[in-house]
């Protein structure tokens, strides 16, 4: 299916017990794009990403990757397809060193030691701070360093699509800037990105297209530039009167 989008969500519903957190979402990400999904707390953003990674799969609907239904797969099979996620809250392995955390990123690939070292050097090039802390335990890093590590670890998986869940949350402005620079660079290397953010301003500036999610439903979808000018978005997410 040459014309199929890279990633497509068709009428995806997700339940936690009897609670329906996501109610029939449709969303696509095409080759090369940065797409953002913005929305407030509890709108269903994280739930959507966890469904795509099959950590907590959909109760109804389909998720297609290159036209193939992946909702029947287990989470490790989804990762093997190159659908890689940087989770909310970073989820660094606290008792593994920075280097070990990065190597966990390459867990599902078979890589020779020499190449692995080259790839580690590439990550250290993006985030020099991580190189300094190479042997330090993940749990002892600052929030910003952990976010760099989480992104570096995801890049070690050689993503076909990279999904980031609130990468700017709780970070100092300089670190947020660095994170968005790296995201732009990764995208420039040809990796499409699905970016989830509460920081709508930065996300919409970085993205080509955007979706707005409220209480589990997509309420708006447009070019990112148009969303930046949209009254509803400006009021609800950009803090403007």
């Amino acid at each position: 299916m040459a014309n199929a989008p890279l990633l497509e969500l068709r009428d995806v519903h997700v339940h936690y017990g009897v609670i329906e957190a996501v109610r029939g979402i449709n969303l696509t990400v095409n080759e090369g794009e940065v797409v953002t999904l913005i929305g407030g707390n509890g709108a269903g953003k994280t739930t959507t990403l966890r469904a795509i990674s099959m950590v907590h799969g959909p109760s109804h609907g389909q998720i297609l990757f290159r036209g193939e239904d992946i909702t029947t797969l287990q989470s490790h099979k989804v990762v093997q397809k190159g659908i890689i996620q940087v989770p909310e809250g970073r989820h660094i392995f606290p008792n593994m060193s920075v280097a070990e955390n990065l190597e966990m990123g390459a867990f599902q690939r078979t890589v020779a030691r020499k190449q692995l070292d080259q790839e580690l050097d590439h990550i250290f090039g993006l985030f020099p701070r991580l190189k300094e802390r190479r042997k330090q335990m993940g749990g002892t890093l600052s929030g910003g360093e952990q976010q760099m590590l989480a992104i570096g670890r995801a890049l070690m998986a050689k993503p076909v699509i990279l999904m980031l869940d609130e990468p700017s949350m709780g970070l100092a402005p300089q670190v947020v800037e660095l994170v968005f620079e790296v995201i732009a660079q990764v995208n420039a290397d040809g990796v499409p990105i699905l970016l989830i953010e509460q920081n709508a301003q930065m996300a919409l500036q970085a993205a080509k297209r955007g979706y707005v999610i409220e209480t589990g439903e997509i309420v708006l979808e447009d070019e990112a530039r148009s969303l930046l000018g949209n009254d509803r978005v400006r009021k609800a997410y950009l803090g403007e009167e």
């Binding site: 990674s53 989470s75 996620q85 989820h91 392995f93 606290p94 966990m104 867990f107 599902q108 998986a157």
Partner: peptide, 9 residues
Amino acid sequence: DVVAAQLMG
């Protein structure tokens, strides 16, 4: 970390 382990494949 169960979730992180899953996300690493």
